[in-house]
Design a binder for these strands. Sequence first.
DNA 1: TGTGTTTTGTACCATTCGGTTCCTAACTCT
DNA 2: AGAGTTAGGAACCGAATGGTACAAAACACA
Lengths: 192, 192
Amino acid sequence: MARPREFDADEALEKAMELFWDVGYDEASLSELLGAMEITKGSFYKAFQDKQSVYLATLDRYNDQVVSNTVAFLGDPAEGTGGDRILALFGRIADLAQKEGDRLGCFLCNALVDKAGGAEAEAKLQAMTRRLENGFYRALQDDGLEETEARGTARGILTAYFGLRVLGRAGLSADMASDCIRQVERMLGRMR
Amino acid sequence: MARPREFDADEALEKAMELFWDVGYDEASLSELLGAMEITKGSFYKAFQDKQSVYLATLDRYNDQVVSNTVAFLGDPAEGTGGDRILALFGRIADLAQKEGDRLGCFLCNALVDKAGGAEAEAKLQAMTRRLENGFYRALQDDGLEETEARGTARGILTAYFGLRVLGRAGLSADMASDCIRQVERMLGRMR
DNA sequence: TGTGTTTTGTACCATTCGGTTCCTAACTCT
DNA sequence: AGAGTTAGGAACCGAATGGTACAAAACACA
């Protein structure tokens, strides 16, 4: 029994995430944010509390969508062995980075460096990082690695993952990506 | 035949670098910057042009000091084999990250993600990245690796380097660091 | 001791920042 | 149709933004 919303809150959040992803928290001014979300101030402050809580919401969104998707892929036996899945993930990232004009990187990684959004944001980011690490960990366990070995390798791969995403955002050259992947293969014990 | 400067321009630039390093370009407001540099506006705009050119100057400073130092270390035969030097560098970074309260990361890496300072900054950052890559490359060549193999491995190590620095800034746990280093050893062909 | 030059600090500038208020428009339900 | 409720939008807010103008202060040289 009231006036219905004219905008899709989920869609608006998606646009907000894309902006924060691209330029970070501070450089995304409120007016830019409103422009991207296609909303005016009134609706913005009515539907969400303020800029910061929108930021936190976009972090949750990234976790629910991108991170979940990635972890699910890493755990999906239909995609081959654990090592196959990890390499496929890195291949996807490398492809993305090679497409000229992508230059987004990984929202989690960017936000980790950005350090915006206070303690609440940091907690979310650390949780996401742990989810990713565990995704690698379980994939390695699927290949029969014992616990401590799998844990150590997972962390090494996580490091390479973040590194690759930084280089991707920085405009990494095409041949760079394949070189990185070869080193991950080496971590997985697949020499060549 | 004029009034001499009351502040040390080099010292002020050092402080500016520390601030940009910590919080990034946008979040470092002009007043914060002035406070850190211990300078008032008048001197600031007289000695340097504006905020952006100070930022660019701090990037140069980081290149001249930190990057140069790192590359020199990687190329110093007195520090052991190429592989030894690379591992020692990673060890230093891991030690830094483990010290609670460091949380700075690498200015180059942070700035790469920050994407502030326009095209000029980006060019400087890419040049620094290349210097670092070549530092690893030459260290590997010192160990007798042939060209393409050394190049590929150098890039993999560069990736791990950035990844480790992101995790360090994010507040990486102590055991995390040693796991990362073990994977770098693996890239270097030193299993264990 | 002047005189000229440069630095320094302060006052000021328009603009933009994130955020609030409040009135009107739009809708649902009775 | 009318009452009740909520969204939308514009006007407005103080504070902070990066940057400029200018007068006073501090020095070097003659």
